[in-house]
Design a binder for these strands. Structure first.
Lengths: 204, 204
DNA sequence: CCATCCATCAATCAATTGATTGAGAACACC
DNA sequence: GGTGTTCTCAATCAATTGATTGATGGATGG
């Protein structure tokens, strides 16, 4: 199971490894199946060593949440911001989500698990909620701009629509393993938010 | 904690009580915090008695899933089906979701937890997935009818839009405890799916 | 070369947890 | 009242699990 021949390494590095292993395990077996022993094994260290770097399971979960937030922020910052119109920027959001769904699906799974846990764990909530709010606000800002510059329909409620978009994308991935379905959903969102409204009528 | 003075009762009734207690506990502490002892205490019986009626925890979870499905089906059937237009019927869906959110919020919480578990538990998946698919198909059918009778926009992709609607409603409830926000989201959905597309422009 | 700190591990602990056992109470039927 | 079935519980088990302990090796600086 574990390949890497272990050498000593400093706490910062070990904590990164531990967070990563925890994430993979959660993606596999869910939060309820998360065991410190499994994490240690995956990292290739003793349980005691794990507890040396991360004092308790609670601290571990907080570490996990922070690790997730860090990656989210990193992704956010490395994005291109060069959309010309608001619609372009919205499409960029769709593309980003699609990219994660394809290349790092565990991220969404763990995100969902943590979001559920945030419901009853204040420590996790303190890390996760701002992240979710930030995402929503980010999309809402794009929508508001699009509404005002005319590239999106004028009767948009930015916050409500942003919530709709995020929920739609997550739900599209929840069941359908087929990425094409996500594309259909984002295409439908786009049609639903642009001005035209299919007023031309008729099916092509 | 437990009030009811216990008397003997038959397996069918006990299993109902157990499923209900399990549901409440999951709503409180999540799947990972579900303990057979806690369930037994909540029902007011001994753990051994619980295991007499429900042989294993796995069986318990399956029972839980079935209990949820039964309630869902029951709700589905007791609904009024008298929407005149498709838009009316869609609004009825919104109202149903709103009603559950207000009067039985635990239902949505447990539903989400079970949906997550279905990812790695085939038994649960076998019960939950058809239920979710049924919901989506139900809404998709309404949308398809609306598209064809002209009360909804002609460029609708019923399955994609249904997924969007469900995801939007769930996501609206996930964070915002305020029911008014759900109303904003459903209002936005409605605007997004009807033909007009705000082509009249301008804010009131 | 030595003292010190850091990282690691084998062994073990205490608590939790799903499940079982064996015996007894409530009930039904005759 | 007798008999068998159904339901219930106190006590207990075996396994799991988060966490600790005490010892060991290695690196670093003097």
């Amino acid at each position: 199971m574990v390949i890497k021949p272990q050498t000593r390494c400093d706490t910062a590095q070990r904590r990164r490894e531990i967070a990563l292993a925890a994430r993979q395990l959660i993606a596999d077996k869910g939060f309820e199946g998360l065991r410190t022993r499994d994490i240690a094994e995956r990292v290739g260290i003793n349980v005691a060593t794990l507890h040396y770097h991360v004092p308790s399971k609670e601290a571990l979960i907080e570490l996990l949440a922070q690790s997730l937030r860090d990656e989210f922020i990193a992704r956010q910052e490395r994005r291109r911001r060069d959309g010309v119109t608001s619609l372009d920027r919205l499409r960029l959001e769709f593309a980003d989500f699609r990219d994660i769904a394809l290349n790092n699906p565990a991220l969404h799974v763990v995100m969902t698990e943590l979001a559920d846990r945030a419901r009853r764990d204040e420590k996790v909530a303190a890390v996760i909620r701002p992240m979710q709010l930030g995402w929503r606000d980010h999309i809402a800002a794009i929508l508001a701009a699009g509404r005002d510059d005319g590239s999106l329909r004028p009767d948009l409620d930015p916050d409500a629509a942003a919530t709709m978009i995020i929920g739609a994308m997550i739900n599209a991935r929840r069941h359908d393993k087929d990425i094409a379905f996500l594309d259909r959903v984002t295409a439908q969102i786009e049609r639903a938010l642009t001005r035209a409204g299919g007023s031309g009528g008729g099916k092509p």
